[in-house]
Amino acid sequence: MNIYEKLQDEACKDGIYVIDYPFKSKKIKGLYCDGTIAIKDNIDTTTEKACVLAEELGHHYTSVGNIIDMEYTGNRKQERQARLWGYNRSIGLFGLIRAYEHGCKDKYEIADYLDVTDEYLEECINCYRDKYGECKTIDNYTIYFIPNLMIFKKI
Score class of each variant (00 low, 15 high):
A38D: 05
K136F: 07
L31T: 11
Y100C: 00
G103S: 05
I37R: 08
E119I: 08
K105W: 07
C33T: 13
E71T: 14
Y17H: 13
I37L: 01
E122T: 11
E101Y: 05
R83W: 10
G35L: 04
Y87G: 00
K105H: 02
D139T: 14
Y120K: 07
D34C: 09
R80M: 13
E109Q: 14
I110W: 03
V116G: 00
Y4W: 08
A82T: 06
T142V: 12
D20R: 10
D34R: 12
Y144C: 04
F23C: 05
F152D: 09
T45Q: 14
R80L: 13
I43Y: 05
T46Y: 15
E123S: 13
I37C: 08
Y17A: 14
F152P: 10
Q8F: 11
Q8T: 05
V64K: 12
A99P: 00
G92E: 05
D106H: 05
D9I: 06
I125N: 01
M70E: 14
M70G: 11
S63R: 09
D41H: 12
D41A: 01
T62E: 08
P147E: 09
K26V: 09
K26Q: 09
Y4M: 07
D139F: 07
I143M: 07
E109W: 13
V116L: 05
G86T: 02
I16Y: 02
Y4S: 04
T137G: 03
L31F: 09
N66S: 11
N140R: 14
I67M: 08
E48G: 10
W85F: 09
S63M: 04
D115H: 06
M1E: 11
Y132I: 00
I43P: 08
I43L: 08
S90W: 01
E134H: 15
D9N: 12
T46C: 15
E48M: 11
A50V: 04
T73H: 13
L114K: 05
C33R: 12
P22R: 00
E109F: 10
D139Q: 12
Y144I: 03
